[in-house]
Design a protein around this nucleic acid. Structure first.
Lengths: 121, 121
DNA sequence: TGAACATTTGAACAGATGTTCACATAAAGG
DNA sequence: CCTTTATGTGAACATCTGTTCAAATGTTCA
């Protein structure tokens, strides 16, 4: 009987049960890809400023966002496309103006949680 | 008296009050930089998998994370350093093993909100 | 001490990213 | 129609990122 193994188990990093459990509960590759993309959409200072602005004022047009942030309309338009592609913002075109707003309440929650984290650090 | 301006205001994108209000409520450059960095830390599929694993099992060593995710220990170690630098994970060294865990409850909340967003889309 | 193991690290590479610039639409007003 | 204004887009650029590979560090155990 291998008594030693019971009393003094070999120290090894491999914890098979944990690994098995996690592997069985792992989400799909595409799930993590999409999740990462969502965070990535918020991971640029310019885009963070855009989202922050849309949290305070729930509808803004491109040039106003550009004015608030202090950069070109072109740069903002490029970034808004990224946010649009990731379904973080939606927009409403009135004549030549495009009014952007956050796509749904989850975006507010997610961003607010990020704000809270940074403010409390 | 410029009656026309009162009844039919010129359609223009510039809404000075909104812009002024937002500019006055804008956070600092470094705030947005740090906020963006926090989101960026979660914006890679490998790192998202690491954080997800640490949400389910609150302490894991490098090789077990590597086993769960299916990549090299070296790659995981590099990513853990990124997460460590951003204060998203902390670690506890026991002999030759390094047990990693999420740094605080805010990380759980933030990540969980992201999960919820993706699951409901 | 020497062998095996866990983790860290640096260099190097391909691939991705954000801005700028110039130009393209597209709508409004004269 | 022509000009002005608001936004969108593509190419080009420098910069950044994530992985791999090789090697170093540090720990355990025989």
């Amino acid at each position: 009987m291998k008594r030693k193994d019971q009393i003094i188990p070999k120290i090894t990093g491999i914890e098979k049960e944990k690994v098995m459990l996690l592997k069985n509960n792992m989400k799909s590759e595409s799930f993590f890809h999409y999740l990462a993309e969502t965070f990535k959409a918020m991971s640029d200072p310019t885009r963070a400023k855009i989202i922050y602005s849309l949290c305070l004022e729930n509808e803004l047009c491109v040039q106003d966002i550009a004015a608030v942030i202090g950069t070109s309309s072109s740069a903002i338009s490029h970034q808004l496309r990224t946010l649009r592609n990731m379904k973080l913002v939606k927009y409403n075109k009135v004549g030549k103006l495009a009014f952007y707003s956050l796509d749904d309440i989850h975006i507010n929650n997610l961003f607010a949680e990020g704000l809270r984290h940074v403010e409390e650090k």
